[in-house]
Design a protein around this nucleic acid. Structure first.
Lengths: 211, 211, 211, 211
DNA sequence: TATGAATGAGTCTTCATTCAT
DNA sequence: GATGAATGAAGACTCATTCAT
């Protein structure tokens, strides 16, 4: 599975590429959050990123590349934060707990970006979309693996295990996707998030029993 | 709260408006599923709907109106199907079960449209977005009401009740939003859906205990 | 010179045609004054006139016909009012005075329409434009004739006579064309008009001497 | 009073903006004279100006901006030519004479543009129209000032002074607005213009006496 | 490498006119 | 004669991408 995609550039200096791309990503996130992908023009993005159009296009090939850079950036954060949260923990159940909690927290912290990426998932071109979906599956399988380690191998019901992984990985996305109603129905978004993590903890217990 | 929006038209004959709009909705759904909202031109939509551009514009004011018509259509289906599923059932718990099951089944049946509407939710103009989000909240409150009837009034923890409603209403959306990975990770989408509904049933039990 | 133009119609009944056309003219004037010729749609005009589009088009062939109907209506008023004002007056100088005064007063009274017709004079189609300009010349020649009767035939300087006619016919158009600044620079438009007519009277004297 | 309007542009290089706008103005004048403002498409204008549509739109925001650019161009010419004509002249009456003569000559020289601007004055958007009318008033006040200097302050009748300014500023517009009939009624347009200026000279004398 | 002006295909929307009922 | 729905050509404007400097 090809779960990475190379974005083309004219520039030789790798370091420079990384620095400028970070600038592009930051600008794009601001632009996309403000206006969405389609309503943000490449010029908007360049302006917010503090680059000229020509320079911007030295580091990408198409507007869609920018969306992918943001996607890649966010996915890396999610993965890294989760690994950081689990590092040093040995107990499988504790690892699972730590991973899920961190996952929810990261999604909450970056909710604007996550919401954006979900909404704009149809804006990737066909080949990028494949990469994105593959990477999503990879991410779910990570939870599947964590779950598997918590259960006696003989008793595993594969289907239930997979569904559990899917559901656990997916649920925190409620925070960005329903933030509007959550904000209105709870004291604050923070409050909703805390209640949700509390619920998630019980859910883990419940789910492990059912597999 | 204004949870409906009137779409403007030049046409006086109300019946005709309804008939033609159904045609527009059907065409738009096909077009949007094939290419997404932005990549579908108004001409595409008109052609697929079997109308001329001029005629199409006699029944709407802007391209975004078309998206709203689709949204309205789908929301009505969800509500009506749910009401149909509960009709005749008295027991609160059975009503809840029936509603949730039907909700999941409808979302599954119309997964292409639901996925579409989630993805294009950023394409509504500001005022329409407000309508859409208000209506979503209204929908969640419906589940809140169903849950409330299952629980002894004295023991209700309002926050947990609300969160439960949010989660239950939201969970089936996993079917359209993660269909790609579900398809790949399970025998079939149908299979994933059945497993999911099975899980949902247990989840109800679990959640009712926790409130 | 063809100083009239026939506007086509499907309708046989002449009386009906006249009645409906008056309705169209009234509606069109309201529409044109409010939005100008180009920004008024045929539908606007039909609505204001209290007709359906289909009916409207039974009495005209093109949108430009409507403008011509208004033009024709206004030109007839100008001519008739002037004739009425002169009727019974024998003395050439008095006839001239009466004509010029009435001309200014009519232009003032219908300033919105006159302004409109001047502004939209480029909107007539080529052949209609010819009619309009011919009719304008005819109108100026009317003043030429009135002037001629005031002067001893032997002393007439043809060029000065013609210029005098042009200027006298043209000057009152200052009222609609500069109404904006006149309103701001004088106590009222009415006041500006009175001053103007006063000036015109002296001007006649002055001009007659110079010819 | 805000008698200038800034037209928006994407281009940073001010010099370039001025050069390209002159090109646009020249092209627009040709197009508008040939077909009028409404019948000239933006593409027509761009083509005649030797620009691509995209480039054209880098120097303006709307089609109406083009009309305003032409208006601004013509108004500047009128003002500058008049100032040039008066420069070095001290005697108030001679200054007035020089100004009025130059005004008539400039209007005659640019009669196509002046006619155009009068006809299309309704095509400006609301806020631009205000600018245009304010600037017109400013222009009239210039004549008012010149007249005032010719008269003994004690004897000034303000109303007559203002009306005189209005009339003198307005009269030469007869040349473009009635050019069609003037051409037909006089040996040539040139001839009509000369007769008109001769008349204007006598008119000045007459008017100064009456104030 | 950086810049920003140039490009023109592509899109939404309008509206004068026609025509079936 | 009256109605109003249907039509589609036409036009203003946008914007991703390129390229000369």
């Amino acid at each position: 599975m090809d779960t990475r995609k190379k974005v083309g550039t004219n520039i030789k200096n790798k370091d420079l590429v990384n620095r400028k791309r970070k600038q592009i990503i930051d600008g794009a996130i601001k632009a996309f959050i403000a206006k969405g992908f389609h309503k943000s023009t490449v010029k908007d993005i360049a302006n917010i990123a503090g680059l000229s159009m020509g320079t911007l296009y030295n580091y990408i090939n198409t507007k869609e590349d920018i969306l992918y850079l943001v996607y890649d950036y966010m996915t890396n954060i999610l993965t890294e934060e989760m690994e950081r949260a689990m590092s040093g923990i040995e107990d499988p159940k504790e690892r699972l707990r730590a991973a899920l909690k961190q996952n929810a927290n990261t999604i909450y912290k970056y909710q604007d970006i996550v919401r954006l990426l979900y909404r704009e998932s149809a804006s990737h071109d066909r080949s990028t979309l494949h990469t994105v979906l593959s990477r999503e599956t990879e991410y779910i399988e990570l939870f599947e693996c964590l779950l598997r380690n918590c259960i006696d191998a003989q008793h595993i019901d594969e289907d239930h295990l997979k569904l559990a992984a899917d559901i656990l990985a997916y649920m925190p996305v409620i925070l960005p996707l329903r933030s509007w109603s959550l904000k209105r129905r709870f004291a604050s978004m923070e409050n909703a998030k805390d209640l949700f993590i509390e619920h998630l903890n019980k859910e883990i217990e419940f789910i492990l029993k059912k597999i």
